[in-house]
Amino acid sequence: MSWQRMAAIMGVVYGIVAILPLFVGDIRFIMQILIICLIWAVVASCWDVIMGFAGIFSFGQVAFFVIGAYTSGIFAVSWQVPAVLAILMAGLFTAGMGVLVGLPCLKLAGPYVALVTFGVHMTLMPLLRGDIGIALGSGGSVGILTIPPITLFGYAFSSANIIPTFYLTLALAVTCSVVILVVINSYWGTAFLALKDSEEFAVSLGISAFKYKLMVFALTSFLTGVVGAYYGHYIGMLSTRMLELDLFVTLMVMLVVGGIGKFPGAILGAFITVTVNELLAPLGSYRAVTMGALVVILVLLLPNGVMGFWLRRSKAGATST
């Protein structure tokens, strides 16, 4: 897909989202969902870059999200670092962690990378809840319950000021998405794709697998860490319950629904998944089963997700005309 088309789809999606407060701005619950959608859209997009474009089966995205959230929370609460600075520091720290996790993955094939990265996810909860986490300021099993909101020029962006906070989140999501768009349409993105399609051939052309794989870990971890940190300041509290499988599975569903490797499908996937999930809420305990069944049907009918389906349709349309 050309970058112009990617940009156009992103523009339409974010454009529609941007005008929604005109209609639902006074319904806090829906505004909350929109903000969370924007946050998940970035996390899912980052996951898409590393898995869909670079072909690295990383299952560590939720872990990086939580690392970013906790890092910023700890900086802000234990060290009184201003929120904006804490978010940037959290992004950099998470990028460093991403590189650290990425290093052993360079020597590993697909499923083993998944094992290592999911191992990071699994070890994070006991680490944050245990003595080390408590010593670092994670709040142990209680979590951190007093994270200050982001304050810019004396104005606090929190759930109490939902519409300004929504637009700040939108700005962050658009910025992150544009960064992803630029990267995947640059030489870096071509290198990611080349390494994914045939690593040996790409290396023979002078593409450094070491450099670009670490780069993709660093970039996606940085963006995920920044968004995780933002989440912490927006919600105002953190707990290790984010590391339960619920969020992990939901993000994976977003990727599948949007189409893996079909950016900006992940953004669409985030909005579709959250909307359908909320629409199914009246089903109560049957919601998860229904959602699971819908995903199975979707995977069977649209193996490349909504974006893959749309691209196929538009290609078929162009051919017929």
Binding site: I36, Y231, M237, S239, R241, M242, E244, D246, L247, A281
Partner: peptide, 8 residues
């Protein structure tokens, strides 16, 4: 549905 009590 409070699911697993994630903050959001």
């Amino acid at each position: 549905d409070s699911k697993e009590f994630a903050p959001e």
